[in-house]
Write a protein that binds this DNA or RNA. Structure first.
Lengths: 216, 216
DNA sequence: GTTGAAGTTTCCAGTGGCTGGAAAAATCAA
DNA sequence: TTGATTTTTCCAGCCACTGGAAACTTCAAC
């Protein structure tokens, strides 16, 4: 693990590797935009990046992985938030703080060229079934890790099944609320509002949601 | 829609088709059991069933579809439960009744030979990543349908985003709790208990779960 | 029956994601 | 510069899946 906060002198090898990586990513995104995801072959990507097809699979395990580049970084961010649990926090507070850190990290500070790429990636993932499946799988994996980390943060006080249920309840609510907002064609910023609705529902419970017979 | 409760005379065409279908399914399951899912090719399946490879894809859109045969039936069951909403029920009660009907339908009445097949299918789905992905995708699709149906059951009284959040919260909690139980190696029947834990967490909310500082 | 229409199965040839192995080139340490 | 290691390249192949067209079955009309 030489993953320190200060980037120590990057060797030529590493630099070329990083550049090749970005070269492939940008070429792939451009082609995806032009011909669609399914309409683009890995051969076309590698031809556009002037790289051998096999090289592509050295950098990415599969075609779809170009679109899920910084998932590991996000994983570390979220799990780190849980590990830093404060003394008086309960599980619900820890999970809430985890989501807060996520939004705080993802709302601002987007490099201009990178924002376009990200938007394109979002659009592709939400429309192409194969990519949706991949995204769901990643989210599923993430929830497993969160539940484990949550358990570890409350040793002896939180049974694994309850921890998993809490994680699933919160993440499921946020996910579905967000997806619903996208399906309704709501603009980008309403998405955060939808996520907040999801958090609220999960936190207060389904019973707290008012039915049609409640007047007030 | 000639899908009536009483099976009206099945023509020879339909009967042969149904038999071919089952022939392929049983052959596939047998080979999956012997050589694993990935270790089995469609060619081997069709050879074992004495059928052309192309025929396989006439019956199933993809290799994994043999393992997800009666999903549509389950969909109809769950969505039907929501549509039959009773006058005084709120959204939470409707969703709870939906899950009750599911368990009531899936706990008993298993044909003996079919139970073995189902157990094998479960084991495969929970171990092979590609199948997990497929299952997640189906569950995702189901939640979308449930949220829509739930909205339709409370016209004008339930906004789509809240409905989606409620659906996601409940289904997410149940899913993760169930998965956690499987991961812990709990026996089959403890799975239903885990699901009940999930329902409880979703119904009462994360805040209602007691933290380490609560003494009661 | 015979014929003709509709549907089902089969064969053939291809596309594209992905893999393994071995050679060639680039990088780094000494 | 030499030798070891890593990275890239090329080649050949597997397998899921597709399209098109031929062969066959079913079924109804005449």
């Amino acid at each position: 693990m030489r993953c320190t906060l200060v980037r120590v002198e990057e060797t030529r090898r590493e630099r070329k590797k990083r550049l090749t990586r970005r070269l492939i990513v940008t070429a792939a995104l451009r082609l995806f935009e032009e011909h669609g995801y399914e309409g683009t072959t890995v051969a076309q990507i590698t031809a556009a990046a002037d790289v051998d097809p096999k090289t592509f699979f050295n950098y990415f395990r599969s075609k779809d992985e170009v679109l899920f580049v910084d998932t590991e970084h996000t994983y570390a961010l979220l799990l780190g938030a849980i590990a830093e649990r404060r003394p008086k926090e309960g599980p619900a507070e820890v999970l809430a703080r985890m989501l807060e850190r996520f939004t705080a990290h993802h709302m601002p500070e987007l490099p201009p060229g990178r924002a376009r790429e990200l938007a394109l990636a979002y659009r592709l993932v939400s429309t192409v079934p194969a990519l949706q499946a991949k995204a769901l799988y990643l989210l599923f994996d993430l929830q497993h890790k969160i539940a484990d980390e949550l358990c570890a943060a409350f040793p002896g006080h939180l049974d694994p099944i309850t921890a998993a249920a809490m994680t699933g309840s919160l993440m499921g609510a946020v996910q579905q609320a967000g997806i619903a907002a996208v399906r309704l064609g709501r603009p980008q910023q309403d998405l955060w509002e939808a996520a907040r609705v999801g958090v609220g529902v999960a936190m207060d419970g389904l019973r707290a949601q008012k039915g049609p017979d409640d007047h007030g």
